[in-house]
């Protein structure tokens, strides 16, 4: 900004900047309001929420809703289920997708292009399009209502392979060629060169997988039959539309239980989240 600016233009620029901040702050308040209302509501007894649904601050704050959630509603178990399923999918995706991503990015082999086109096509096929045959198949494997049934369909994802291929593709070939000339096997190259250099990509993939699985709904809804196999969103949804649909305090507490852990993880690792999402959109 070394150019000379006329005083009126400078004033205009300041006004514009103030306007931008006002817009951003207002927008942020609106964006965060539902979070605040949810958290505050979870601290209210149900009667208080019914009495004045527009109130913000709890008059007699209580942790009773959370205690109920744990003691009466088994949310501890759902929480463990959610962690187990998401965790297993993270391990599967990180391991298997990076292997396949390496082959697709750095080895020239027969069938490479058709495999990659299939991965690309599958990127846009939504889960809702295949849940029926998937259910038939997983059931016939005898895995309905089991952890394996919950996990297996998402153990690898086309998105995982896509991300890893794109990232590994940017690692300079010269590094690999040097190792190959030294007689290193592909396995050794993968373990000693590719994996150490892929740290940020693996972190991104791990986080996106965890996020997706934590919030996944349709598949666990279909394949989990009994209470002890529910993940948090399934439990919350069935709870919300069933007999407890008006137990507002408990439901808001349940929503907090689903949202708060992932938001906390997000706040700690936000760089990876945002980069991960942005990189899905950039070739």
């Amino acid at each position: 900004m070394t150019t000379v600016i006329a005083p009126s233009a400078a004033r205009q620029r300041v006004a514009l900047r103030i306007g931008t901040y006002v817009l951003l702050v207002l927008g942020l308040v609106v964006t965060l309001a539902p979070f605040a209302w949810m958290m505050l509501g979870a601290l209210k007894p149900t009667g208080e929420i019914i009495a004045d649904p527009t109130a913000w601050l709890p008059k007699s704050p209580t942790l009773g809703n959370f205690a109920d959630l744990l003691s009466r509603q088994n949310f501890g178990l759902y929480f463990v289920n959610s962690i187990l399923v998401a965790g297993a999918c993270v391990v599967g995706n990180v391991l298997f997708c990076s292997m396949a991503g390496y082959a697709l990015a750095k080895i020239d082999f027969a069938g490479q292009r058709i495999l990659f086109s299939l991965v690309l096509v599958m990127l846009v096929v939504p889960g809702i399009a295949t849940f029926v045959p998937l259910f038939v198949q997983v059931s016939n494997l005898g895995l309905a209502n089991s952890y394996l049934g919950l996990i297996m369909p998402y153990l690898v994802t086309p998105l995982g392979v896509f991300l890893m291929r794109q990232f590994i593709g940017e690692i300079p070939d010269s590094l690999l060629e040097a190792a190959r000339l030294d007689g290193a096997s592909e396995v050794r190259i993968f373990l000693r060169i590719i994996l150490p250099l892929s740290g940020p990509a693996l972190a991104t993939l791990a986080i996106l997988t965890f996020l997706f699985q934590w919030n996944n709904f349709l598949w666990p809804l279909v394949i989990a039959q009994t209470d002890n196999m529910y993940t948090l969103p399934v439990a919350l949804a069935l709870f919300a539309v069933g007999a407890n649909g008006t137990n507002y305090g408990l439901l808001l507490a349940g929503s907090v239980a689903v949202v708060l852990p992932i938001v906390t993880v997000f706040l700690c690792l936000q760089r990876y989240f945002i980069q991960g999402i942005a990189s899905t959109g950039i070739k």
Partner: peptide
């Protein structure tokens, strides 16, 4: 989670 959001 869309579920939690929808509940709220």
């Amino acid at each position: 989670s869309i579920i939690a959001v929808a509940v709220v």
